[in-house]
Write a protein that binds this DNA or RNA. Structure first.
Lengths: 385, 385
DNA sequence: CCGAGTTAGTAAACTCCTCAGCATTATCCA
DNA sequence: TGGATAATGCTGAGGAGTTTACTAACTCGG
């Protein structure tokens, strides 16, 4: 426990950080407002905020034609556009990139379809392409990107490799970190898609109030991401949440109940088949309801294992099937009641298919915070790896 | 994010805390040593440590006949005996109390047998009795106890109740916090026994190096306690780790394989039956080995669920059966290999049956730390609830 | 027995930070 | 145009840690 002593300059750094926190995510603020938020005196805030302006972290906004009594105050604004981060979702069928500023405002979102059978090199080329498009469309260069996080399917190890397994063809051999490192000198990270979705749900989704969350990715594949005590749980080898690997948990075959439901139009693609069944169940089709019930029953075993292990506050039902949450959540709740000691809240995700990229953005922002604001902030510039 | 600004006095508090950390758990130290550990200058440490002495947190030790070159240094010592904490294990067959000083040195350990069928009132009377014995033997009063933690079997809610289930007869109706609050004005907490054992393993057991730990309580009952990122995981309702409640996980019946093994002497008590089987297996008895294998196979399903969910660094095999870890760990490892993606380390506990009380002591110490050292430390005295 | 060398304790000067209070400035309203 | 109001700017006070220098205490070796 080498708790280290504090001295004056460190205190100043801390207070400067406090001002950054008070500035960021708020509308342009006066010194008085900042002083109130930060719990510091006006003069102290004044010199701190002026230092921030000098370093380039903040901007002055001279008073306009305000209609307030008294001398109108100068306002200070966090320069959220001093840097940007990229969140990338490398899916089976698509590649999605989201560019965000330092305040988490989404600047641009672009997607490209990808051949599901594309080999890693082609897929990475599409990643490069969509990144280029985003940067070109927003007039940015790779140096404007301060951190970059990529979401992929399958357990991701510390090096960003997906050596254990992944449905992306050939991807176990891919090294996306190394690939992107040739173009970006900022921190590049790869993370599992379920984990990123979980992060997104806590950031902008339906679990903003919760600290202990199980995110369920429900689609043709099933997976889970865990947030405990407000932080993403990776596990010692990055394989937390992979309960689906247990044979007694029939997550691998659970969606088959939907695919093999009698009555599905022969023209339907695999993804649409499930949607058709959910719709039919909604309409009262007997066989569809049975299929959904069977699917739910298999799903519930794994969810129960997660819930019993972690006792979370919320379980978020997300992924491709989350649009049909209305026909799944109730039977799922019933099944869980059978298995669990204490039932958590069940909520349906509303983030859609951008949640992975969104979570990637959030993680990249966290990375920037850790690096730049971790202890004493330097001039605004892209952190190096 | 109301990060609050720091001022001079707060800085001083922090540095004083730093000195406490540098002092505690170390042999009596000179000012120079403390300055090195705390990263502060000698004069600064000097005034801080003298303030601590004045408040009663530290003691001076005048230099003796040292044979070192130069002027012999005064040494300062943390007054670990300024306060004490109690850890209590309320088991089915026994009640165990451990008294510790503020540095975690165990001062006294006492146990009392309890009738397994004793009602809550009688069991609480035994708790009172063993606490009285410990205090009398060490010449302490209830006011010397700064925090008290009790370990019981079954999931414990925020109020310290065990309403869901517990093998202690009638205990679902018991309110140990209320009972002890009549005698102790310090913080009183109740916690699940598996969780406390997990804490103990990380404190003084075989998992001191790990931050992500699954503790397995293996005995006539089976349970688990989780430590993630170095902190105990309670779960939102205090029911984390209760994977044994899942029917697909046959933890409830797993020990039956041992109890029903042919060849057990009719004279053996239930607890000894398992021990006999383990010994027979060790000696090569065919049927005993089969029984152990079956037990292990059932055990492994639940462990695999925990491991796949959490991806811990270490699984600690503890509880009554841990003395026979030599015949269980290897088959368990084989079973887990079948189920898991990434195999964690498997270690056998060596703490024996005092681990619950030990973990309770650790939690009580943490409580004291949070209260007294949380922000700015006051004069040494028992914190109030 | 004494002086050189070494280390601990102490005091003063200095730097840096925050805070409180007062004068100054800019704007609105009567 | 003058008064009210609120923000800004400035200056001095107080507190905390650091540096530097000096004194005290002890060991070792001649």
């Amino acid at each position: 426990m080498a708790t280290t002593g504090t001295d004056l300059s460190r205190m100043r750094e801390m207070n400067q950080l406090t001002i950054v926190w008070a500035l960021r995510g708020n509308p342009p603020s006066t010194v008085t407002e900042l002083a109130g938020r930060a719990g510091l005196s006006r003069p102290a805030v004044d010199v701190l905020v002026q230092a921030l302006v000098a370093e380039g972290w903040a901007e002055v906004q001279e008073p306009g034609a305000g209609s307030v009594v008294g001398r109108p105050a100068r306002r200070y604004r966090f320069r959220a556009d001093a840097g940007h981060v990229l969140g990338i979702d490398v899916g089976v069928h698509k590649v999605l990139a989201v560019l965000s500023d330092l305040e988490g405002n989404l600047v641009r979102t672009l997607r490209r379809p990808v051949d599901p059978d594309a080999p890693p090199a082609a897929r990475l080329a599409e990643v490069d392409g969509v990144i280029d498009d985003v940067l070109r469309a927003t007039g940015k260069t790779p140096d404007d990107v301060w951190a970059l996080t990529v979401g992929v399917t399958g357990p991701v190890d510390a090096a960003g490799r997906t050596s254990l397994s992944t449905p992306l063809p050939g991807w176990t051999e891919a090294d996306p970190v190394a690939h992107l490192a040739t173009r970006f000198s900022c921190p590049v990270r790869v993370e599992n898609d379920c984990k990123l979705s979980a992060v997104a749900e806590r950031w902008k989704g339906v679990a903003q109030d919760a600290d202990d969350i199980v995110f369920l990715l429900a689609g043709l594949r099933t997976g889970a991401g865990l947030i405990l005590d407000g932080t993403l749980r990776r596990g010692h080898g990055g394989a937390a949440g992979e309960i689906g690997a247990l044979k007694a948990v029939r997550w691998l075959t659970a969606p088959d109940h939907l695919q093999s439901c009698p009555g599905i139009p022969a023209t339907a693609a695999p993804g649409e088949a499930a949607a058709w069944v959910f719709q039919a169940a909604r309409d009262g089709d007997r066989e569809a309801r049975t299929a959904v019930r069977r699917y739910t029953r298999d799903l519930a075993v794994g969810v129960a294992a997660l819930v019993l292990t972690l006792d979370p506050q919320v379980v978020v039902y997300g992924g491709g099937f989350s649009r049909s949450a209305d026909v799944v959540l109730e039977p799922l709740r019933r099944e869980l009641t059978k298995h669990c000691l204490r039932l958590p809240e069940l909520r349906a995700s509303t983030l859609g298919d951008e949640s992975v990229a969104l979570g990637a953005v959030r993680l990249a922002l966290d990375e920037v915070d850790d690096r730049l604001l971790g202890d004493g902030l330097s001039a605004p510039a892209a952190p190096r790896r």
